[in-house]
Design a protein around this nucleic acid. Structure first.
Lengths: 339, 339
DNA sequence: CAATAAAAAGTGATCGATCCACTTCTGAGT
DNA sequence: ACTCAGAAGTGGATCGATCACTTTTTATTG
């Protein structure tokens, strides 16, 4: 497996009968050349199948045109988001380096610090929660895909707040009065946000919450949350952290003889493929993760290039989907009868 | 956001009181230095927080220590595999560049060709099917995570073959005689393999298959496959391409009044989190995608370094899991009664 | 048409590492 | 004490781009 040595800018220059600087200019901005010269260079580039050596360029310019995306190992892998982020970055001429870090938020923060000072990337996108002491600023721009939240909080609005409210108001409209929230891993601000909006909304509407269970995004956590409830708690509606948790909740309910949605309404989050075809199909929130990722990359590139932050692409990325797992609550004595 | 200029090998050398070459030697092989010198260099490196400029190194050595992973956009994103691949590569001192390509196998093949001759990566791992005219060899090593299949075929064994056989034999043992296979996207060799082993096994055991539906890994394809069946086809067992498809099959069956597993047994593939908590819970095959990815990276690194291919880590990466979606078939007249 | 400004092209230095061809040390054997 | 092999260290060339300047060409204008 021997690689043919790729041609250099000098070889192109020689073939085109110009200086290497002219070729360099051509690479930066084709219009800065006289048409006649441009054509000569163009031909030479094509003839030699020339492509610039990015290492050499990066050495001189001190820019790498490379972004790092840091994510946590484990479940909940943001595949669609990563895929969209990579494509967006490529279109802008940047490459994506994936750094998958085992361990908690502090470990990831350390890795990010390391990355930032390594000089190997022009910017970093953190797709998982990180525990970064923001006191010391990093050497390169950092965008957290979670920062949506803090930004939005400034505007008096938490990420996902609208949807959580819509869900609870909908359920309350059906007649539900007693709720349970099985939250996601509280390391994630998305999980924290939904939890706090849940509590706010319950309070505001004068409803009752039998509590919030801090889960870990797993189906098991949903199952356990439900099976641990006292029989007479009166819960008729559950807001789960995501579809997987919702699935666990439904299964746990059934193990106690509570049918969904007859005895219990359950809401998920994420609109996963299986949820639509499950029985009962899951009421959920569809999230445009691709758009979120594109936004995050655009913000990062803007920061790198010192431009103002671009507009968020749309406010209505998410929407609530109503399916079979939600229904009016049973009559007051309904459940004891069912047991 | 101004970056402090990182220190160079010369600065380290000056602080340590040695020449830059000595520092370079230290970086390559710490043991080639006299202990006294080594300590001086070690101290200077730490004091200046020195880290070598990889662009400069790469320019000189003509190696990048970077691998590209090519994947397709869309559903079925191999998140766990990617994560494991990245970690394995990092441990070996390689970085991972993710290239997510929209379009079909030919588009991906073109992108791979482009990547290979770009000189930016030392090797490529293709995690999605590609249509590569193998005639012209690439400039850098390429490993397809699907190549498992072809390799294994040489040994008379297709990937996943054991599991498909085990599934069908199990179902036959329960009394099933008439089968349906809802296959995955035939672009993927995993889908092709399972399909052909399905057909072989049906044949070998003298069972009946009402056909193979070529799907696209989606739940909808499973739903459609079932609802399109004639009422009197007599199918009592379905082997689905994966868990999502299986979910669609189950839902489709229910829409016709066929209960799973009473009237129909359904097998999935992948052991996704939701499948275990669905009702009925899915019989499936658990796949160790992390191990597969690690294997693939190891093979790629071996090729890059010109070493012989390493041993596959284990033959028994997969195992069949029996859950509620499979049971003995109904008595011969069972279904018509249910309708 | 000459003067002059502006645009285009060329020259040589530079980025920060490794590698090569040497020179200088070190220490064991006689 | 002397030799000499081999280890340790040195200076300078080199990789392939960009950049700051300088020089040449082209266009403009009175």
């Amino acid at each position: 497996m021997e690689r043919k040595r790729p041609s250099t800018i000098h070889e192109v220059a020689r073939l085109a009968g110009v200086s290497h600087t002219t070729v360099s200019r051509y690479l930066q901005d084709k219009d800065s050349l006289k048409p006649k010269t441009r054509i000569k260079v163009e031909y030479a580039v094509k003839a030699l199948d020339y492509r610039p050596n990015l290492a050499a360029r990066s050495m001189r310019t001190r820019r790498t045109n490379r972004l790092a995306i840091v994510l946590a190992t484990g479940p909940n892998f943001p595949g669609r988001a990563l895929s969209a982020a990579a494509e967006t970055a490529h279109q802008a001429g940047y490459q994506i380096e994936v750094v998958s870090v085992e361990g908690g938020p502090r470990v990831r923060a350390a890795r990010i610090d390391e990355l930032a000072r390594s000089g190997q990337v022009d910017g970093i996108l953190a797709m998982s929660s990180i525990d970064l002491k923001s006191s010391r600023s990093l050497e390169v721009p950092l965008v957290r895909s979670e920062i949506h939240d803090e930004k939005l909080r400034v505007l008096g609005e938490l990420a996902g707040a609208t949807e959580v409210r819509e869900i609870i108001e909908y359920l309350a409209g059906l007649g539900h009065r007693t709720f349970l929230h099985v939250a996601g891993d509280q390391e994630f601000s998305s999980a924290r946000n939904r939890k706090s909006v849940y509590l706010e909304t319950i309070e505001r509407l004068g409803l009752r919450s039998v509590g919030v269970v801090d889960g870990d995004w797993s189906a098991q956590s949903g199952y356990d949350a439900i099976t641990a409830l006292p029989a007479d708690c009166g819960v008729t509606a559950v807001v789960a952290a995501n579809d997987v948790v919702a699935m666990g909740v439904i299964r746990g309910a059934r193990s106690r003889g509570w049918e969904v949605p007859r005895d219990l309404s359950v809401f998920g989050w994420d609109d996963e493929a299986m949820g639509q075809f499950a029985t009962p199909s899951l009421s959920t929130v569809s999230v445009d993760r691709e758009a979120q990722a594109r936004d995050a990359i655009h913000r990062l590139l803007a920061e790198i290039q010192g431009k103002p932050a671009p507009e968020r692409s749309a406010r209505t990325l998410n929407h609530v989907i109503y399916r079979e797992s939600t229904a009016p609550p049973p009559p007051a004595d309904g459940r004891s009868e069912a047991q």
